[in-house]
Design a protein around this nucleic acid. Structure first.
Lengths: 147, 147
DNA sequence: CTACAAGCTCAACTTAACTTGAGGTCAAGC
DNA sequence: GCTTGACCTCAAGTTAAGTTGAGCTTGTAG
């Protein structure tokens, strides 16, 4: 009845969908932790599944392992993270996530806003209609990318 | 009055905020194009600024140059892209963008949904409460990641 | 008690996305 | 008309994120 207390690296790999070598790699980078059996084999607590899930999702949206690692550092050392702990992590990321969401929406919604190089709006683009004004304003005329 | 018809690689770099070497690189990968002066120097049409803007934004949300390149292929060869052309590109990406947006929202909103490894919901997670049922269902118990 | 799948470490290889450097050309200002 | 900063090409180096392989150990099923 009681769920197995610990998972082997192979079990975590199977359940999480990432390769054993990747789990070793994450551990070397401090993103996940394990303890060892007397025979030097890794054993994982089940919160590792959630950590790996976050790593995967975060990576998919372009967050680097370094950033993910920094965020995961905020989780408690000794005990299994609570819902509150996970919420804190989300909060820490909120700004950057909101920014990415808005970038994605721009891409999805027809690239009609002014982004990147200067201006994305075709019809009323200052670059096209006003003799290239933005080119002279500071270091590169980035608008929404900077803001 | 009339805006300069063409941009040098240095001007594009300054206006778009990417390095000259990166522009060369994008050109080698077919993401942007230029023609050459009699002295073999690159000259860009102004639509290159928009292309580079898209490359930057797309990269920021984890889209690879290969994917971006494939999408940019849908833009017209000879003429400057119209608003319609850009909208088509957005449409082609819509599914993948929507998926990324939903992943981002999950991260932002407290990681409370069932994602990745099996289940993200702490209190009612089948992994925690039901003797690990999901572990036996197929190849890895991925839920929202797969769906 | 033994075979063999699963683990372990460590070093080397891979791919993506660029950057850096060497060695040489172009063009705009004085 | 020359000098100096912008360009050119091509090769090699860099960082992130893993994968692959060799050689050796563990642990479980028959």
């Amino acid at each position: 009845m009681a769920p197995a207390a610990e998972l082997t690296v192979g079990q975590v790999a199977m359940r999480s969908g990432v390769a054993v070598s990747a789990l070793h790699f994450y551990e070397a980078r401090g993103l996940i932790r394990s303890h060892r059996t007397s025979g030097n084999q890794r054993r994982y607590g089940r919160d590792v599944l959630r950590r790996v899930a976050i790593i995967k999702v975060a990576q998919e949206v372009g967050i680097s392992l370094a950033e993910i690692g920094a965020a995961l550092e905020s989780l408690p050392e000794g005990r299994t993270p609570t819902r509150e702990d996970w919420n804190l992590l989300s909060t820490a990321w909120r700004d950057s996530l909101d920014h990415k969401i808005s970038q994605l929406k721009k891409l999805r919604d027809g690239l009609t806003d002014c982004i990147g190089c200067g201006c994305m709006s075709i019809d009323k683009c200052p670059l096209r209609n006003k003799g290239d004004r933005l080119a002279r304003e500071g270091t590169g005329a980035r608008r929404l990318v900077a803001g």
